[in-house]
């Protein structure tokens, strides 16, 4: 059954409205699948607070985890 919220036409309309890019139908279908995959991934983190994160966390982690050999 087609997703009433996110489907080929809604994706096409969204991308046209946001970016003025006219997607082909096959591309819109792929994007529907992708959006749903991303929703599943991020739902795992829905309860996690990101309040104390910042972009430099990653660079700091790289430096901290480096170990001279």
């Amino acid at each position: 059954m087609a997703d009433p919220f996110m489907n080929r036409q809604s994706i096409k309309d969204l991308v046209l409205r946001w970016h003025e890019v006219d997607l082909e139908e096959g591309a819109a279908d792929r994007l529907v699948a992708l959006v749903n995959l991303h929703a599943e991934t991020f739902n795992e983190y829905a309860k996690q607070s990101f309040f104390d994160t910042e972009p430099s966390n990653f660079d700091r982690m790289l430096a901290e985890e480096s170990r001279n050999d």
Partner: peptide
């Protein structure tokens, strides 16, 4: 190439920032 560039047009800002912020945690 076009088909691989188009998906970025529908990803949300919140998901993008979460993917950035999760990077340290997941890499660690």
């Amino acid at each position: 190439v076009r088909a691989r560039l188009e998906p970025g047009l529908v990803m949300t800002g919140v998901h993008y920032v979460k993917a950035l912020q999760l990077r340290a945690q997941i890499s660690k």
